Simulated scan of single mutants.
Amino acid sequence: MKLREDESAKLYGVGSPLEERRDAFVDGEVPVAVYGLGKMGLPLAVVYAGVTSNVIGVDVDEDVVARINDGDCHVEGEPRLPELTSAAVNAGAFRASADPAAAAAEASVHVVIVPTTLRDDNHPDLSNLRTAVRDIATGLDPGDVVFVESTVPPGTCEDVVEPVLVEESGLSTDQFGLAFCPERTSSGRALKDIRGAYPKVVGGTDAESTAIAETVYGELTVNDVVPVSDATTAECVKVFEGVYRDVNIALANELASFTDELGVDVNEAIEVANTQPFCDIHDPGVGVGGHCIPY
């Protein structure tokens, strides 16, 4: 595992052309830390390792960390992930750590992909995100960049993440980069999705952060990278995608209940209705599934 020997190996605020910064990233000169090694975090870390060969994965579960460092994969149901995890670890391109502060001290690129759950009052629980950001702040240096992939309420990067990083690190907002780069992945196809099944959305808190995110993710995906105006717009994109699916799945299920009473084949009715170009009704099912959409 390469460590940061050259403190100038930074991506933000260094003044060099983006092409040179991209080359440094790809050559492994810019250490990456991925915080959260769950169902989506581990595949993301492995893809990063395949590109830059200098990645630390961070997780608070010491058993998960031990398994990964043994070349094992704790995430089930993801094709090729066990083989790629083992290969990355054995090649020295990827290792796991249960010490987020130590990882933050080594890394120049910090990628947050911890879960956002709901509190008892149905408001978003950002405690995992806040903890990860505080840990990053302990090792945040001028020139570092932070990418948030976790699904969050719009405004979180500007109203929560950036203030915590500033307060805990002592840096000003113009000394580090921050961008929201939402994961757009599904269980069972995470590697395929990360590598480019869909365009990657990125939005920074300033223009340089957006440009760096576009440059980095342009190396991870074979699809387009779509930069948006700012981090809050990118956060809206992710939430809008989920709301669209939630509402339309609910609509399809309501229509199925209605047609049951009429003795009508709902699938036939939907298929024909969708021949109208302004109609795109989803298929009904047993409910709103997956790990993210219900939240």
Rank of each mutant, 00 (worst) to 15 (best):
S8F: 09
S16E: 14
E20N: 08
A24R: 14
P31Q: 05
V32C: 10
A33I: 10
A33Y: 07
M40C: 05
L42T: 00
V47S: 02
S53E: 15
I56H: 03
V64G: 01
V65C: 11
A66M: 08
D70G: 11
G77N: 10
P79T: 03
L84M: 15
S86D: 09
A91P: 02
E106R: 12
V109N: 01
V112H: 04
I113Q: 01
P115N: 06
T116C: 07
N122Y: 12
N122C: 13
D125W: 07
R134M: 12
D135G: 12
D135L: 01
V146E: 03
V152C: 07
T156I: 10
V166Q: 15
E168N: 08
L171N: 00
D174I: 00
L178H: 07
A179H: 04
R184E: 06
S187G: 12
A190W: 01
I194P: 02
P199W: 03
V202P: 02
Y217M: 02
G218H: 05
E219M: 07
V225A: 08
A231K: 06
V237T: 13
E241V: 09
R245S: 11
E261G: 14
L262N: 00
L262H: 11
L262R: 13
V264S: 04
V266H: 05
V272E: 14
Q276D: 15
F278P: 00
C279Q: 13
I281R: 04
I281D: 06
G285K: 09
V288A: 05
C292W: 10
P294Q: 08
